[in-house]
Write a protein that binds this DNA or RNA. Structure first.
Lengths: 213, 213
DNA sequence: AACATATGTTAGCGACGCTGACATCGCAAA
DNA sequence: TTTGCGATGTCAGCGTCGCTAACATATGTT
């Protein structure tokens, strides 16, 4: 692990050393995101983020309640990004289509792969990390959108069954794929697996009402 | 968070204070497992485990390489237990049957719920936690067993398709269900969800070859 | 009995999260 | 302009943690 040995005088590079940073809140969020993505949230230290931002370790407490609070902010923004990704994909592939629903699942996994640490913050561990208010709302927004798509698909293709239950099954599968992939749990068992293909293969089977009841 | 203020003289309760603990390795594993299950692996400290075991914080290093090493040992034993649970369920429900395969999935989730912290250690985070040798082997054993069951089911029911791919789909779904459940991510969207029912409902749809290619 | 090895303790290093007291900056009222 | 005040940063320090080196004690082999 590389030590970060920067004097609190100033962050790397530009601007002259002024006593007040000016945009410390955003700077800390940026630094945290970068470090968390590099080393994982487990190994992230607030002190390192301070060194990157060019401030002392006491400074963050003017903007955040503590370490957890910064991480929660990052998780919160992650939901916003995930939602916008989903909507972008849908606009491309078409609403209420099988291709659109598959593409949403693949986008979910792509997000998990590209922003692994953020993804883990969003869904993992103790829910204490998630700002109850904002995150719960945003994640629900995300999910409601999926339900809408499934409902539309069911209507068009005359699939009977609860759209919510079907959406739950899709989410469950896709989340499992994302988790196993980023945790490298597939490696021991199916090294070269193509998860996008796996999703495309499984989705039709999940897009149907259950017979058992 | 309750402080643990025990003198290293002796663990709570029985036996006289002797210089050598005698079974420190197992005692530490037990203490760690208990604490990790109570507070999560994130908030676990080796020092607390030492207090529970009644030794100083330097003692563990005679038996483990460090904190990670103890956690890895616990993850390793988790795989053993998961495998034995699966086999017990199979013996009960019958091999190669739909009911048996569903029950295996439900047992997987039950394990995740009952031993949440161990489950997270087994599959989560950086793979550095898993003892490359032992764990990789044991988890592969687990999975091979699932493949066998699926292959048997396919043969009996004349389902064509790659048993490995089908097994992967099942694992993916069930792992997603376990993850979302223990991380309480279903709560915001489907509060009273019955995951066992969800698994039973989804399994038939996954137990079929994909048409797309 | 004497030694070698295993297993525990003591003391201490550097890092971390966080806090209280102090310093500096920017802005608004006098 | 000056004064004063709140916002935002630094400094110094507490308690804890993971880990190590040096020392103490128990165990078992010859």
């Amino acid at each position: 692990m590389g030590r970060l040995t920067t004097k609190p005088g100033q962050a790397q590079g530009h601007a002259k050393a002024r006593y007040h940073h000016g945009e410390l809140r955003e700077a800390l969020i940026g630094a945290t995101r970068k470090l968390v993505e590099e080393r994982g949230a487990e190994n992230f230290t607030l002190a390192d983020a301070c060194r990157v931002a060019g401030v002392t370790t006491a400074a963050p407490y003017r903007h955040f309640q503590g370490k957890q609070d910064i991480l929660a902010e990052i998780a919160s923004r992650g939901f916003d990004e995930l939602k916008s990704r989903s909507m972008a994909v849908l606009a491309d592939k078409g609403e209420g289509t099988l291709a659109g629903i598959i593409a949403m699942g693949q986008a979910y996994v792509a997000f998990a792969v590209e922003e692994t640490a953020v993804f883990r913050l969003m869904f993992g561990q103790e829910p204490s990390l998630r700002k109850a208010q904002h995150v719960a709302g945003t994640s629900q927004d995300c999910f409601v959108h999926v339900i809408d798509q499934v409902a539309l698909y069911c209507k068009r293709n005359k699939v009977r069954g609860d759209a919510q239950e079907i959406a739950l099954k899709l989410w469950t599968f896709v989340h499992g794929a994302a988790s196993l992939l980023i945790d490298q749990d597939y490696e021991a068992v199916a090294p070269g697996i193509d998860v996008n293909k796996l999703i495309a293969a499984a989705t039709p089977g999940l897009l149907t009402a259950s017979r058992s009841r």
